[in-house]
Design a protein around this nucleic acid. Structure first.
Lengths: 239, 239
DNA sequence: TAATATGATTAGGCTATACTAATCAGATTA
DNA sequence: TAATCTGATTAGTATAGCCTAATCATATTA
């Protein structure tokens, strides 16, 4: 097979796609992703990252400042968001149509996202009614590569008395996810912070509208990302 | 990562799985699969096959007789049938639940079969009601690795007057599959051969029970594998 | 400012998969 | 039987990942 006859813009490999995704997550607020953090997230040795970083910057997917870290280029960001879209649509499809649960779906989607075609992703999206959020409440990027940038606070930092909507759960850990689901703490739930203990102590919340109480330790409270809900909206009577 | 801590029975790579599948298909009747045929099916150069053959026989998945060809061992056959099961369940799921058509589904399944977990395959199988045949009429191996060995004849060789059920269509070519679907020639259809021209000429068939005629050229007639249907069964009145 | 600690990179290898060019074995034909 | 043809194998390379050990750059601390 003549190299000149092959695709001029070859598909990214599995591994490249994984690197781009973690760089996206690590450099989210316009910062740099550090080599060692990338290595830790992917569970590879730091020199493997240096090697891949060289390849990725040669192909224009990332910008590398030695000893500083890396950032995605526009092209790299597009590729990363494409994978994130695939991942989140897969998670939702598997939970809604194939009986997967909240906790178990991540690993399966992680494998599949590298194998599904664009056509299949869009068929799943349309079967799902073009959803905006995945089962963890994370926003699903559009096919064009846009993503909702929500203003969220961790429950651990939210002011007492505010009406909040739980929007995202910042972990893929199956045990934590199961526990949260048992407690009724899933994306979409409305709540208020009724009390917080000092010295990084637990947060006590009241679910809305039921008024049920939950006490959430510091660690979990930092994983629960919430959006402030305007008070004159729904549910004001229930307080 | 210490090599001793890794999985003692690592998953087969994509490529190994593909080799096993084509060896299965090429050596179907207990024969040997030739190096050059494997190379042609996988679109790789013959030396690549020689190299892979060495690795596969070292790991006990195939038996190699130099300058003769290769055969699967029991272990290799199990691995091949596992991939075939995945492929066929995927094809059926994609056609029945995601709107894929007969012709377009093969390539997608080919990619996915390497990424899906056993759990996902079994969830799809159970959503489908544990089907026995894929959309082309090919039998789906069981999870335990058994496969129906049907006694089929190509339409091109079937005797005139016999009542037949079209069971399998021996191609993945999208144009041919679409044409056959238009002609109503899909697995499950009942028919009889009403006439055959000599010198490798076309076969004329009558569909049962409608009686509609179709004229099928030699090439297609060799792809249409049929099962003889006992005459005193269903549909006898319709003749 | 000098010494040290931390984190990043280079050097040098390993494996799986592919390739081309060269050689070898077996089958066919003269 | 000898010559030839076909198809299979070996030899030698390439690439994309990964690794460990050694070195280098930056930041921190004395």
């Amino acid at each position: 097979m003549n190299a000149l006859l092959r695709d001029a813009n070859p598909p990214l490999t599995r591994s490249v796609e994984d690197y781009l995704k973690v760089i996206y997550h690590l450099s989210n607020q316009g910062g740099f992703a550090a080599t060692s953090d990338i290595a830790a997230m992917l569970e590879v040795a730091p020199p493997s990252v240096s090697g891949m970083v060289k390849r990725l910057s040669e192909t224009g997917l990332i910008e590398h400042v030695p000893y500083r870290g890396v950032q995605l280029t526009a092209q790299g960001r597009r590729a990363a968001l494409k994978m994130i879209r695939r991942h989140r649509i897969l998670e939702l499809y598997l939970t809604q149509h194939l009986g997967y649960d909240w906790g178990g779906v991540h690993a399966e989607a992680e494998q599949l996202e590298h194998a599904v075609s664009d056509e299949l992703v869009e068929r799943m999206a349309s079967t799902l009614g073009h959803p905006l959020y995945d089962p963890h409440g994370d926003p699903i990027p559009t096919a064009a590569g846009e993503i909702e940038e929500a203003e969220l606070v961790p429950l651990a930092d939210a002011a007492v008395g505010l009406k909040l909507e739980l929007r995202q759960v910042g972990t893929q850990d199956s045990a934590r996810l199961h526990y949260l689901a048992e407690q009724g703490l899933t994306p979409g739930v409305l709540l208020t912070v009724s009390e917080r203990q000092p010295f990084n102590g637990p947060t006590t919340i009241a679910l809305v509208p039921s008024g049920d109480r939950r006490v959430v330790g510091r660690e979990l409270a930092q994983l629960l990302w919430c959006r402030e809900v305007p008070v004159d909206g729904y549910g004001a009577a229930a307080r």
